[in-house]
Design a protein around this nucleic acid. Sequence first.
DNA 1: TCTTTTCTGTTGTAAAAACAACCGATTTGT
DNA 2: ACAAATCGGTTGTTTTTACAACAGAAAAGA
Lengths: 219, 219
Amino acid sequence: MKKYIPVLKRTRLFTGVGNDEITSMLSCLDARHKSYKKGEYVLRQGEHLSDITVLVEGNLHIQNDDYWGSRSILGEISVGEMFGEAYVAYDSGALLNDVVAVEDSTVIFFDVKRILTTCSSACRFHAMVVQNLFFAISEKNRKLVQKLGHMSKRTTREKLISYLSEQAKKQNSANFTIPFNRQQLADFLSVDRSAMSNELCKMRDEGLLKFEKNMFRLL
Amino acid sequence: MKKYIPVLKRTRLFTGVGNDEITSMLSCLDARHKSYKKGEYVLRQGEHLSDITVLVEGNLHIQNDDYWGSRSILGEISVGEMFGEAYVAYDSGALLNDVVAVEDSTVIFFDVKRILTTCSSACRFHAMVVQNLFFAISEKNRKLVQKLGHMSKRTTREKLISYLSEQAKKQNSANFTIPFNRQQLADFLSVDRSAMSNELCKMRDEGLLKFEKNMFRLL
DNA sequence: TCTTTTCTGTTGTAAAAACAACCGATTTGT
DNA sequence: ACAAATCGGTTGTTTTTACAACAGAAAAGA
């Protein structure tokens, strides 16, 4: 567990917390880690969550497959990001999505719930953790709103422009890479892959952008 | 301000807080109220927010108009609900949407930011407020995920079924009313109004549901 | 290295949505 | 009570998307 401390130190959850303090919090929060092979499910829709999770290795997708097999990708979790904050509340109900490892991954589970819902002061970092959690969930909230912004566009082209512009802005450059392949991007934007591929190539031919694999350049 | 205490008492933010305590918190949190006529903007996209707001009268929409005038409704705020929690974090950036009064409305502004970002104990309800805020934003987060669930459906019919099913479940009955008229529902689901109206009537003719104005019944 | 699988782009067709225009009914405002 | 604006439904046309099927390139695996 110790080897993950450098990673944890750079996460939202442990912002402003020193190495020694993280160590003591690991036991205070009953931290456990678990590894998953590519393709394995970390969490499943319908489960009730009592922990939050931090990804310390690999890459996860939050997704949803419907009865007819069509997939929708809600979001992507990269190293240092967490998942499950929204399900800590006692009345939050069951998980609405699956969380799947898209690479071999390692996740740390924290029982943050008891920190939030009890008034005990077994650990003196309560306030800090709560505040960090709050900021983390705020950030996720804003991300969801951004995604809704993309999805509310009517055409595939508009959705692409909306998404790619956001990525360019986020990475502070007209050159950037995206964390999805074509099928995943289509699932993320809820459009058909072939139609999207087609549109992307049209946009390239019109001189709006260039791309090669996951690297894009807006012109 | 005092007349709003009964309303405030039933909000997420003040869950578990007594009347006297609310009164003292109103000054602690520098509460101010403001009224808006139907159609007026409460908040505008691009603004930087330092307060959170609680609606005590009326109805608000969180929405977004693009350059070509097409509108997208992100969500609806009814009495007792709050807005702006996601923008309390110091690095949250500008507001991504407009907030508009769809009826004559009254809003109370709270400077919750200083509660979160300082360690002073000027008010002994810090912990409670932070926890309530956390649960509120968790809930909003889950709502956004649900909305994304509707929007990720490919056809208008699927979007409608997804949305109406959620409403039925939420209101615990196959009979329920929705908080939107047709145009607003279309803007909420990001589809064309006339196409949606058409689809709705087809579904009615096929015996899937009945409706009259904002009242629906799933069969 | 060779085979197999995955990934991406391309095309044609069928289905669906967007758009525009219109009308009657209801609601709002004066 | 009357005029004006809003609302909901209907229809036809155009545009866009979904779907299916295929092929070459790249990547993964044996």
